[in-house]
């Protein structure tokens, strides 16, 4: 990962990093059409030019429910298996380069974070939690499903 470009964002008050290769662009979120009966972490859909983006609230997707988080109304656009998503975060901070490879910390990151984090990564502006997209997009239900399957 050394030298990789990272997009740094604040999620639920923590500094997180996305690989810049995953992030197609950062947009200002316009009107969001809510999707009734969709999972809670899916805020709705929004239009980016002629494209429809699924808006994922990262805070809820990680599992921090019951709390409202501020947002700077900007979102990172990512694509996963042919679908485009807009990731709603507290704020987009910066783009920087990674220093070294992602690693674990003793004691872990806590259950919610561990599910979505690839590991801690050192960057030019300090350490950040590297987020894995598939786990994030799957939402908190995914983990519950796994636990139920394991039981």
């Amino acid at each position: 990962m050394n030298g990789h470009l990272l997009v740094i964002a604040q999620i639920a008050g923590r500094r997180c990093a996305f690989s810049a290769l995953d992030v197609k662009s950062v947009i200002d979120l316009g009107a969001i059409t809510p999707i009734p009966r969709a999972p809670a972490h899916i805020t709705g859909i929004t239009a980016l030019r002629s494209q429809a983006l699924t808006v994922i609230d990262c805070r809820l997707a990680i599992g921090f429910t019951g709390q409202t988080w501020p947002t700077d109304e900007r979102a990172a656009v990512v694509a996963d298996s042919g679908h485009s998503y807009a990731l709603l975060v507290d704020g987009i901070e910066d783009i920087t380069t990674a220093v070294g490879d992602p690693g674990q910390v003793p004691g872990g990151f806590g259950p919610e974070w561990s599910r979505v984090a690839t590991g801690m990564i050192e960057t030019m502006i300090g350490p950040a939690l590297l987020i894995g997209l598939p786990a994030l997009l799957a939402g908190p239900e995914a983990m519950r499903g796994e636990i139920e399957a394991a039981l």
Binding site: I35, A38, I42, Q51, A52, S81, H83, L137, G139
Partner: peptide, 10 residues
């Protein structure tokens, strides 16, 4: 246009 799988699941 197609929707994301999580939305289709509804």
């Amino acid at each position: 246009k197609p929707l994301a799988p999580a939305v289709m699941k509804c």
